[in-house]
């Protein structure tokens, strides 16, 4: 699996999946971000921007079963998720999208979007 962005969310996922035995590749432009990976992380790290096609290629996205885009930027997440889905035909693609109105636009495009804003709102005000 490929995880794009090694922030709090990305590194947490990477550590967890790695521990569970998955082969994980983490992509982040900041090499310092990889210090958030735990000592027993057994996957690969790639320094680079995931909106760069060559970087996704290097991360062997074509062989991944799952790609999760967790960068701070909605557009980066949506773009690399779409590239993973359409070009690399990754079976499952998840993008974190803060802005719920953007998430709405990409509904039905084959990628799953997770909006922390909506999740937080729904936990405060559960849908009746």
């Amino acid at each position: 699996m490929v995880i794009v962005g090694c922030g709090r969310f990305g590194s947490y996922l990477a550590n967890r999946y790695s521990r569970a035995g998955s082969s994980v590749v983490v992509v982040d432009p900041d090499p310092g971000s990889f210090t958030a990976l735990s000592a027993d992380f057994s996957g690969f790290t790639i320094e680079g921007n995931a909106f760069e096609f060559a970087v996704l290629q290097q991360a062997k996205t074509g062989k991944a079963d799952l790609l999760v885009a967790t960068t701070q930027k909605d557009s980066t997440n949506l773009f690399c998720a779409q590239v993973a889905k359409v070009h690399f035909q990754v079976p499952e693609v998840i993008a974190r999208v803060y802005d719920p109105s953007l998430a709405a636009i990409f509904q039905g495009s084959g990628i799953t979007t997770i909006s922390p804003v909506l999740i937080a709102a729904e936990s405060f005000f559960p849908p009746a």
């Binding site: 909106f51 930027k73 773009f79 690399c80 779409q82």
Partner: peptide, 12 residues
């Protein structure tokens, strides 16, 4: 100057 932004704008 950001491809991913341009992509998003066009998709929207």
């Amino acid at each position: 100057p950001h491809d991913e932004d341009n992509y998003l704008i066009c998709q929207a």
